[in-house]
Structures are given as C-alpha cells and as structure tokens.
C-alpha cells in the first residue's frame, strides 16, 4: 500500500528495510545516530538498530569512507553517509581508488558492496565549497555506479537496489528535495540501476536530465506547452550505467535533444550524453544536441546569482526553442 511520505523518509525506509533483513548492512557517518541525522534522514534509526549498527563518526571522511571499504572487503554491506558530497572530496582517494578498483586490482578476489550517499548539488546559498555536483567528476571512473533519484518513489527504489548491489554505488541526493513528498509503497522494492524513465511524454524534443533539474525540466515543459512546444522529459535515474537505449528511442521520435545537467559543462555527464546521442542517433537529429549546465563559475552565495547559475527553467526553455528552431 502506498502513502505520501517525504523524500528523506523514503531513503530511511530503504535503509531500515534492508537492515532488518540483512545484519551485514549498517549505517555509518557524521551525526547519523545521536543527532538523528544532520538532515534527519536517519531519524529514529539509532533507537531501532542501536549504536553498533547506526554509527556516529568523527569528522573524518577519509577515515570512515576507507573503514567502510575495508568492511565491505570482508563481506559486510556498509552504507556510508556523506553529510554532503562536497565533503567527499577529501576522501577522494578512498572512494575513487579503493572502492571501485579493488575487484580489478585483486583479479576478482575482493568485491566491495558499499553505498556512499548524501546531498549533492546546490543546497541553497551555501557558496562554492558546499555546492558541489560530483556526478561528472566521479562518473569518469570505471568500477562504480551512480544513481540520482528525483522523487521519493525513486529514492526508496534506487537506494534499495544500491544496498543490494554487489558493486560500489554512489547515491546522489539533494538537500533541496529531502522535504519533497510523494506516493511511496510501504513494502520494499527495487528500481533497476541503469534504467531511465519517461516523466512526461512529448513529441517535439527529448529533454534528458538527472535528479533535481528534472523538476526544472517539468516546469519548463509547462511554459513551452503554452508556446505549442511539446517536450518529452526523460529522467535518467542513473548516470552510470547510462540508459542510452531509452534516450535514443525517444530521440528517434522527436528528432531533437536537450541535456540538462547540473554539473559544469566541460567533460561532464551532459557532454557524455550528448556524445552518445550524436553517436547513436546521428541520422535522426534535426539539430545538434544542446546542453544546459550550471554556469562554468564557482557557485556564488548571493541568491540571485545562484539562481542564475543553475540550469533553470529559462535556460532550458531557451535551449529547447533553439534546438527546435523556435527561437
């Protein structure tokens, strides 16, 4: 049975369900236990599972990320929470060298079934150091998977799949979406990692996005509909693996494509999707793929500057008009 719950509740349900089923699953991170989670994602979990499985850490990302990887090498299934993915940068060696390459370097001896999760992207006037979108940086590395849920239903399904997955999975959430509500089934369920979903069917242009900017695309769709432009919005759900099949199927119908990616443009998820669409749908395209990104500047503090920097509705509308020759 479904009920309406918040995004953060959906994440917590995924973790709690798996922890009830599998004693190898535990949650570790800063403020996850006694504080009830810096963003209340883990609220109440300490009461249910106790301090041996809901584990507060020092502010020590390299240490606890590496500890999680070592535990995963021993066959446990850690969920490592980064308060923000921005803070994962200090643990980059652990999460990029050790987690995704252990299986290969050990010739198949050691799997690392671990989940790293936390807030990604602009949180709201947090300034440059706290507003990282890590998807483009990290997607460059083989051996890891990246999922980006955009609503509570996906949050529970994708995180459940991530916890059960035998490979390292990075789950990128958004502080700005944690209070978003949506219909979520009570029972546990998985969404397949690497499978996109069409959020809004349309005929004139395929707009591909991931995570929070999917909502910017939906808002842009309303504006464009009034102008007579009917866009199809695809939520990629996972960056790696990338579901190019669903995207290509759509582009073959609409003959045009815009990619909306909240990371910077250079060597990004957006440029990868564009390159793939050009490769697979070259003969189907009426125009080259247009890309909408965060502006290529450090995230500013001022409210108006931050709003301008993000891949907002206005920029999406402009890109769609341009790619469909309606500019």
């Amino acid at each position: 049975m479904s009920r309406t719950i918040e995004f953060r509740d959906a994440l917590r349900e995924a973790m709690s369900d798996e922890m009830r089923k599998d004693p190898k699953v535990f949650l570790i991170g800063e403020e996850v236990a006694q504080y009830d989670g810096a963003y209340k994602v883990s609220r109440g979990m300490l009461d249910e599972f106790g301090p041996s499985r809901i584990i507060d850490t020092p502010i020590s990302e390299t240490g606890f990320a590496g500890l999680g990887i070592g535990a995963a090498m021993m066959g446990l299934r850690p969920i490592v929470e980064f308060m923000s993915w921005s803070f994962s940068l200090v643990a980059a060696d652990q999460i990029l060298n050790n987690a995704p390459k252990m299986l290969y370097m050990s010739g198949g001896q050691f799997q690392v079934p671990i989940v790293f999760r936390g807030n990604d992207g602009a949180g709201g006037q947090l300034g440059s150091t706290h507003s990282w979108c890590v998807e483009s940086l990290y997607a460059n590395v083989p051996g890891l998977k990246i999922v980006i849920p955009s609503d509570p239903y996906d949050a529970k399904g994708l995180l459940t799949a991530a916890i059960r997955d035998p490979d390292p999975v990075f789950c990128l959430e958004s502080e700005r979406m944690l209070s978003m509500t949506g219909e979520v089934p009570e029972e546990a369920y998985e969404l397949p990692i690497g499978k996109a979903v069409i959020r809004r069917p349309g005929t004139d242009c395929t707009v591909v996005s991931f995570g929070r900017p999917v909502h910017f695309c939906m808002a842009a769709a309303e504006i464009l509909a009034k102008e007579g432009i009917d866009i199809e919005v695809i939520d990629g759900r996972s960056v790696k693996p990338l579901d190019i099949d669903t995207i290509a199927e759509s582009v073959r119908r609409t003959n045009s494509c815009v990619v909306v990616d909240q990371s910077w443009s250079f060597a990004s998820v957006g440029s990868e999707v564009a390159a793939e669409v050009h490769r697979v749908c070259f003969d189907d395209l009426d125009n080259h793929v247009h890309r909408v990104h965060s502006d290529d500047v450090p995230a500013p503090y001022a409210h108006n500057l931050e709003a301008e920097m993000l891949p907002n509705e206005r920029k999406i509308c402009e890109a769609v008009r341009s790619v469909t020759y309606n500019a």
């Binding site: 590496g66 070592g70 535990a71 090498m73 021993m74 066959g75 446990l76 652990q94 060298n97």
Partner: peptide, 21 residues
Amino acid sequence: GAQTPLGAGLAFATKYEDEVI
C-alpha cells in the same frame, strides 16, 4: 597510507561479525 583506513575497516568488520552478527 591509503591502506590504513582499510585496515581499520577489516578489523571493524571482524569485530562486527563476531559481536553483532
């Protein structure tokens, strides 16, 4: 030095397996 957090993790896991599981 990158193996030192992993070493802590291996030992964490042995203790967890024994005491928790």
